[in-house]
Simulated scan of single mutants.
Amino acid sequence: MFTGIIEEIGTVRSVTPGRDAATLEIAASVVLEDVGIGDSIAVNGVCVTVTEFSRDTFKTDLMPETLKATSLATVKHGTRVNLERALRADGRLGGHIVSGHVDCTAKIRAMRAEGNAVYMELAVPAEYLIYLVRKGSVALDGTSLTVFDVGQDLITVSLVPHTRAATILGAKKPGDLVNLECDILAKYAERMLQPSANQAVGLSLNTLKEHGFA
């Protein structure tokens, strides 16, 4: 689990392609302070496993599904990436619960400055809009953000100066892709409300009343 609070921006040192897979080597510093083999690090919001590390780099393997479903398939030597170590049990949850399991990629449709903020509009696949609500949480390239507005096929988020300076989102432009992870609590709630094989209907107000919850 992660919080969506980016710890540092790393740089892709190398990409070694394999058969429908790849190995990334990423230069970093903060996330390497207490790193170990098998540790989880979020790279642009994608939870990956550390397979090797040195004083200033770590390596990780990308499986075929990761290359198909995320923007990590497009990174190359010199690409800057958001990095975050897994959440410690004694740490602050400064953002929201982020699993590192990216749902889809979203394309930046427009950006506009207003005061000290930059509003970013992103086109989102229709099947994921159900999990996105105004004032709810979303992770973009692993960055915890608040949804400012939801439209028919897009969402709007607001980037404050610190977010633009501390993450790669500050360098994004219209047409770029970002990894999007919906709030996992919304996905669990939808699943609980769906009928199961042994249940004629999903959770309803009548069901809650019958069991003394309403």
Rank of each mutant, 00 (worst) to 15 (best):
L132T: 11
C182V: 13
D176M: 12
V102C: 10
R88Q: 14
G142R: 08
V12T: 12
S14A: 15
G91Y: 01
G212Y: 01
D176G: 02
E114W: 01
T16G: 00
R13L: 06
H101L: 08
L159S: 06
S99L: 13
G94C: 09
D39I: 10
E7Q: 15
T66N: 04
D141A: 13
T163P: 04
H77L: 09
L129A: 12
G170I: 07
L24P: 09
I168R: 05
Y128Q: 05
D141W: 04
V150T: 02
V157S: 06
R92E: 03
I108H: 04
A69L: 15
H96E: 02
T167L: 08
S144Q: 11
G202A: 07
C47Y: 00
L67D: 11
G136L: 02
L193T: 08
D183K: 13
A117E: 13
V150K: 03
M192C: 07
G115M: 10
A21T: 13
A42W: 10
V43P: 00
I5P: 00
G115E: 05
C104N: 04
V133A: 15
L177I: 06
S54W: 11
K135L: 03
G100Y: 15
Y131E: 04
T70H: 10
E114R: 10
F58P: 14
V160G: 00
Y131W: 04
A171K: 15
R191I: 01
F2Y: 11
F2Q: 04
P174K: 12
T11F: 08
K76P: 03
V118W: 09
M192E: 01
H77Y: 09
R85L: 00
P174N: 12
A27E: 15
V102K: 08
E8K: 07
G18W: 03
L154K: 14
A126V: 00
L140K: 10
E25H: 08
V201A: 12
L62Q: 07
R88P: 00
E181K: 09
S71M: 13
V118M: 08
G142Y: 14
I168Q: 11
G170F: 13
L32P: 13
I184H: 07
V160S: 10
L145M: 09
S144E: 10
N44Q: 14
R19E: 15
S99I: 08
L140V: 13
L87C: 05
L62I: 02
E114V: 03
D20F: 05
M1C: 08
G18A: 09
G38S: 09
D39A: 10
G36K: 14
L159T: 05
M63T: 12
R134N: 02
N198L: 11
K59C: 12
S54V: 09
Y188D: 03
A21C: 14
V98M: 15
V48N: 05
F213S: 06
A139L: 04
T57S: 07
A186S: 15
F2S: 08
S144L: 02
A113L: 08
D149H: 14
R109E: 14
L193Y: 09
G94T: 07
G202K: 12
L129F: 02
Y188V: 03
I6N: 03
M192I: 06
E210L: 15
A186P: 11
V157W: 04
